[in-house]
Amino acid sequence: MDGKQLRGTTPTGRRQASVQLVSVWAVEQRLCLTQVPVAEKRSEAVAMPQVLELVDVVGNVVSLDALGTQPALAARLLEREANYVLVLKQNQRELFAQVQARFAPLLVQAPAQEHREKGHGRGEQRRLWLSRYFPLVDAAGAWPGLRTLVCVQTTRWQQGRATCASRYYLSSLGQASASELAGYVRGHWGIENHQHWQPDVTWYEDGCRRDHAPRNLSTLRKLALTLLQCDDTVTSLRRKRKKVARDDNFLR
Rank of each mutant, 00 (worst) to 15 (best):
G119Y: 05
Q100M: 07
R209I: 00
Y204V: 12
A26E: 11
C151K: 08
L106W: 05
Q70D: 10
Y184G: 13
L86S: 09
L31S: 15
T34A: 15
A176W: 00
H196W: 09
E205N: 04
R246Y: 11
S63C: 07
P214Q: 09
A176K: 01
Q198M: 11
H194V: 03
H115W: 05
Q98F: 07
V152T: 02
C32G: 15
Q35H: 14
R241C: 12
R30Q: 14
R80E: 07
W129S: 10
R102N: 01
D65T: 00
D247K: 08
R42P: 08
C164L: 10
Q5K: 14
Q175P: 01
Q35M: 10
E53Q: 08
V61D: 08
P199C: 07
V19A: 13
L251V: 13
Q70Y: 12
V27I: 11
G187Y: 06
K41F: 03
D248L: 14
S131R: 04
Q109P: 03
Q195F: 04
R210M: 03
Q175L: 12
V62G: 05
E180C: 09
L77N: 04
E117Y: 04
W129D: 05
A245N: 03
L170E: 00
K89G: 02
H212N: 03
P111Q: 06
A162H: 00
R246N: 13
V27F: 12
W157E: 13
V234E: 13
L67M: 14
Q159I: 00
S18K: 15
W25I: 15
R80V: 03
N193M: 02
K118L: 12
D231F: 10
P105Y: 08
D248S: 15
R42N: 13
G123V: 09
A142R: 10
Y184D: 10
V185E: 05
P71K: 15
K41S: 11
Q35A: 11
K222D: 15
D206M: 02
L170I: 01
A17N: 04
Q153Y: 03
V61C: 11
A47E: 12
D232T: 14
P214A: 09
R127M: 13
L67Q: 05
V150W: 03
E53V: 02
R156V: 15
S166M: 08
G3D: 12
T155W: 10
T12H: 15
R238E: 15
H188G: 09
G187V: 12
S236W: 15
C164P: 06
R116E: 13
D248I: 15
A74T: 10
A224M: 13
R209G: 04
V87Y: 00
T9N: 06
V99R: 04
G123Q: 04
V58N: 05
Y169C: 00
G68H: 05
L149P: 02
Q229H: 12
A142C: 10
R241Q: 14
T10C: 15
C32K: 14
Q29K: 13
S218P: 00
N60M: 12
G68P: 09
E124A: 09
Q90D: 04
S236C: 14
Q159G: 01
N83H: 13
D200C: 09
K222H: 13
L67P: 02
Q125H: 06
L228Q: 05
S18R: 11
R156C: 06
R93P: 00
H120G: 07
R167Y: 01
L95T: 00
L225F: 10
V58E: 07
D247C: 13
T12D: 11
Q92L: 03
E180Y: 02
A176C: 02
Q35G: 09
D211G: 02
A26W: 11
M48A: 12
E205S: 06
G145H: 03
